[in-house]
């Protein structure tokens, strides 16, 4: 029997921000264990604290209460064994595609190995031929692929993705989801994907964490056991999708635009 190994532990984590009049409670009592190699999605309305949670996992911002541990060690600052892809590609505009990806390498590696790693990851995200292009010469989808390659080239054990396809059109988004799925099957990394696209979460994840809106609390953890690649129009798929949709709707602010979830 396969041994399940917990890689990321989030234990009773709360986050409060100080704002001019008192405090804003953003996340409350979040507890979650993520296994090595698991694909986890976090869904919730915008402003419920999803990005804040990722920032705490990666060590950019400490939790107000509780503990976050990676492989048993408390997270206190960013470390290269945990990578992150942001909603915007965040490429360095003065570096070419090649140089941007190379910037992702922090470990000491020899020149030849560097060269090989960069080439391998350019091919992995399908950007061969664009090595010398500047970010401004690329489409949004291509830029996001460069930023994924930059996060992967360091070989992080955990990859955090913060609404990485939010800014892309529907078709490109579906393409990117397929690519991420291939990547995940190929590299077997632990992936934590934040999204407000329910379809995306059901299509990709082993488990979906549903957060309530302010303060963010875990409403449910939904296992998705459908075999991959998943059929987006299958009954089971649609059932899970509408379950999550109901959670979010009963919880949504009036101001939230329903279209976002359909």
């Amino acid at each position: 029997m396969e041994q399940k190994q917990i890689q990321l532990t989030i234990q009773n984590v709360s986050k409060k921000f100080r704002i001019d009049k008192g405090t804003l409670s953003v996340l409350e009592d979040i507890s979650l264990e993520i296994e090595k190699g698991e694909f986890i999605s976090i869904v919730g309305t915008s402003g419920c604290g999803k990005s804040t949670l990722l920032k705490m996992i990666i060590g950019l911002d400490p939790p107000t209460e509780g503990h976050i541990r990676i492989d048993g060690r408390e997270v206190v600052k960013p470390a290269i064994d945990c990578g992150m892809v942001f909603q915007e590609a965040r490429l360095f505009p003065w570096l070419t595609v090649r140089e941007n990806i190379e910037f992702g390498i922090t470990r000491p590696v020899s020149g030849g190995e560097r060269e090989r790693l960069v080439r391998q990851h350019i091919e992995l995200v399908g950007l061969a031929g664009f090595e010398k292009a500047l970010p401004k010469q690329l489409s949004g989808g291509m830029q996001q692929r460069v930023s994924i390659a930059r996060a992967l080239v360091n070989h992080p054990d955990i990859l955090l993705l913060d609404e990485p396809f939010g800014a892309l059109d529907a078709l490109t988004r579906i393409n990117m989801q397929n690519e991420v799925l291939k990547l995940w099957e190929h590299e077997k990394k632990t992936m934590v994907l934040v999204t407000h696209d329910i379809d995306e979460a059901v299509f990709l994840s082993d488990r979906i964490i549903v957060l309530s809106s302010r303060p963010g609390q875990i409403m449910d953890k939904i296992e998705v056991t459908l075999p991959r690649p998943r059929e987006r129009s299958s009954d089971e798929f649609l059932k899970i999708r509408s379950k999550i949709f109901k959670y979010l709707m009963t919880n949504a602010d009036e101001s939230v635009n329903i279209d976002q979830y359909l």
Binding site: I58, G59, L60, P78, A79, I80, C82, G83, M84, F86, E88, R90, F92, F103, G104, T106, N154
Partner: peptide, 19 residues
């Protein structure tokens, strides 16, 4: 936002300054 990218890649201060 670019500084955050460099920080999560554990870049040294000298790299931050020059790059």
């Amino acid at each position: 936002k670019l500084l955050e990218v460099a920080r999560i890649l554990e870049k040294k201060r000298s790299v931050l300054i020059w790059k």
